[in-house]
Design a protein around this nucleic acid. Structure first.
Length: 583
DNA sequence: GCCGTTTTCGGCCCGACTGTTTTCAGTCG
């Protein structure tokens, strides 16, 4: 039995906390398990070693009882207490936690009083009035639950890019490693770097289609096989996402790749252009129609196809029929930003607030990624739940960063910042005297999401008007597939960013990817600069920059549009630009 | 269930908001 990882142990502790809460256990006992989960996540050493040396109890937040449980878990890979507890609950009941507005108390009530154990049961009970009749419930609550169920249904079968990227790259690498595979790619919306995808499409050029298909459907990641034919196979991965494989001949590959990359709208225009030239385009070939005046040229790669249709090569991220055709005709497509262009990044957390890695660990990870600088922006005090820093703790962190910088002899630099909460009225969580001591600030909305669009827009713009505000964090507050954006007037905020010289963040956390790619062309047109920030809460999450680059490319951004492509020596002036302009 | 003791049990994280109530419980961040 393999030793579980820290994250697996932490997840199990969280799961115990959830079940205890559902049982109506003492809330402080519940919290002890939550705290222990966090202690495990942030523990710097090796848990198996600590367990072997009987030192688990020395970890703050882990006492005698939990230490014993972890010892059992680490030694055997199982935990009897957890399994006994889990057996007390109907399996469907945990799904109810996915519904916005429904917590342990309400779930317990509908379960015990109405015998509701699944989302389907709950929907029925809301519609026939039983939920509204429960003590402490009412019609409004029942309606809200129905709305939450509908919202969940809308998102069903959809996956965040970041959640399935591991699956996609793993399968792709395995397909490419097969002996008779000439070319392979993931196509579809994954290749276009959509923030949310419905399925994965693999395209493989091979001389051994049967073997490749068999390999695909029998892969360890596959949970069930839905179809297994000569050229097309469909499976469901264990992660829940559907994956399709198309096997083609080498000569068909560029057409299949192009066709299955889409988007559908882009494909329609491609086929129209082919028709206009007397040719026909499908997933296998570009061929002449009857009575064609000319033969189409030979196509070896996608770039040849675009050229044949009178177009500059269109990068997959731009294939949305959002203006790429006229631009490609006129050779004015942008040279899109690449991951290698990034020199540093700004919105990152440490253990000082709700991050799981220390400042030193974050710096080390940034250096390993080849970055020249790292900005630290922990939460401010109003984000109490995230252990936000008050002015004293923030200034101590600033001093720590300044001291650390002196030890690094200029080849790497840490910038001291803060993710400052924007209050309901648009005021900031720190006064200007404190902000003035930072290298920069990111300002974000973390509370009171229920304002009208006008109020929310006014609130954010007021914050941006402060000369010490460098950039605006996650503009809409959305959490993909789980929480809708609060209402905000994007165009007005972009206008205000241009007027005040405020940078807008492209939050690269795959749960956010906010500001949305659809708005970046407008920001660019107005001269607003972008900062691609991972919003990292762990050292490994600096790699979220990869997803940010995908979205930036989708937003037509070049390296000139993104400030964190600037090297040390140039970036400082951009960070200080706004406050200097005011002087 | 953990912690920190004024060593044996009391305290443990706050504020806003909603919907249900008529003073507060539940949820969220």
């Amino acid at each position: 039995m393999p030793v579980p990882t820290k994250d697996q142990i932490a997840d199990l502790l969280e799961s115990i906390a959830q079940m205890l809460e559902l049982k109506g256990e003492n809330i402080f006992k519940v919290r002890a398990y939550t705290n222990a989960a966090r202690a495990v996540e942030t523990y710097p050493g090796d848990l198996a070693t600590a367990a072997a040396e009987n030192r688990l109890g020395d970890i703050h937040g882990i006492g005698r009882a939990i230490a014993d449980k972890l010892t059992e878990l680490i030694a055997t890979g199982r935990l009897g207490y957890y399994e006994t507890l889990k057996a007390e609950f109907p399996p469907g009941i945990f799904e109810l936690f996915e519904l916005q507005g429904l917590g342990p108390k309400k779930i317990k009530a509908v379960w015990e009083k109405l015998n509701v154990t699944t989302v389907t049961d709950l929907e029925k009970a809301c519609k026939d009035g039983r939920v509204a009749g429960l003590a402490g419930f009412g019609k409004k609550t029942a309606d809200n639950i129905l709305a939450a169920i509908q919202s969940r249904a809308r998102h069903a079968g959809r996956f965040r890019l970041g959640d399935i990227a591991g699956d996609a790259e793993h399968m792709l690498a395995d397909l490419r490693s097969l002996p008779d595979v000439h070319q392979a790619s993931v196509a579809g919306s994954y290749r276009r770097r959509k923030e949310v995808v419905g399925d994965l499409d693999f395209i493989v050029a091979t001389s051994a289609p049967a073997e490749v298909s068999a390999f695909f459907v029998n892969h360890e990641m596959v949970e069930s096989i839905m179809a297994h034919g000569a050229t097309k196979s469909s499976v469901r991965f264990k992660s829940g996402i559907q994956a399709d494989l198309r096997v083609v001949k080498n000569g068909e590959y560029p057409f299949a790749l192009n066709y299955f990359t889409g988007s559908k709208e882009h494909n329609i225009l491609m086929r129209q252009r082919a028709l206009a030239r007397g040719w026909t385009l499908n997933e296998y070939r570009l061929g002449p129609l009857e009575n064609a005046k000319s033969e189409p040229p030979p196509i070896h790669e996608e770039v040849d196809l675009y050229q044949a249709l009178g177009l500059e090569y269109v990068e997959p991220e731009l294939r949305e029929d959002h203006g790429e055709f006229p631009a490609a005709e006129q050779h004015r497509l942008p040279e899109l930003i690449e991951l290698e262009n990034l020199r540093g990044t700004f919105h990152n957390h440490t253990t000082a607030s709700d991050g799981r890695s220390t400042l030193a660990e974050m710096v080390e990870a940034a250096r390993e990624l080849g970055l020249q600088y790292l900005g630290i922006a922990d939460h401010s005090k109003a984000s109490f739940q995230a252990h936000g820093l008050d002015a004293d703790r923030l200034l101590a962190q600033v001093a720590e960063i300044r001291a650390l910088n002196k030890t690094m002899s200029g080849e790497f630099k840490i910038f001291a910042g803060s993710e400052v909460d924007i209050h309901k009225d648009g005021s900031l969580d720190f006064p200007d005297e404190v902000l003035a001591q930072l290298d920069y600030s990111v300002v974000s909305v973390h509370s009171v999401f229920n304002l009208t669009e006008a109020e929310m827009t006014k609130r954010i713009i007021k914050a941006m008007e402060n000369p010490y505000v460098t950039m605006l964090g996650h503009l809409t507050g959305r959490l993909l597939l789980s929480r809708e954006s609060y209402p905000v007037d994007h165009a007005a905020v972009i206008e205000a960013a241009a007027a005040t010289g405020t940078i807008i963040e492209l939050n690269a956390n795959p749960r956010r990817l906010d500001m949305d790619w659809r708005w970046w062309p407008l920001a660019k047109e107005k001269g607003v600069k972008c900062a691609i920030n991972p919003d990292a809460h762990h050292a490994t999450q600096l790699e979220f920059l990869h997803f940010g680059i995908g979205i930036a490319r989708k937003g037509w951004l070049t390296r000139q549009d993104v400030i964190n492509t600037l090297p040390l020596g140039k970036i400082e002036a951009v960070l200080a630009g706004k406050r200097n302009a005011k002087k």
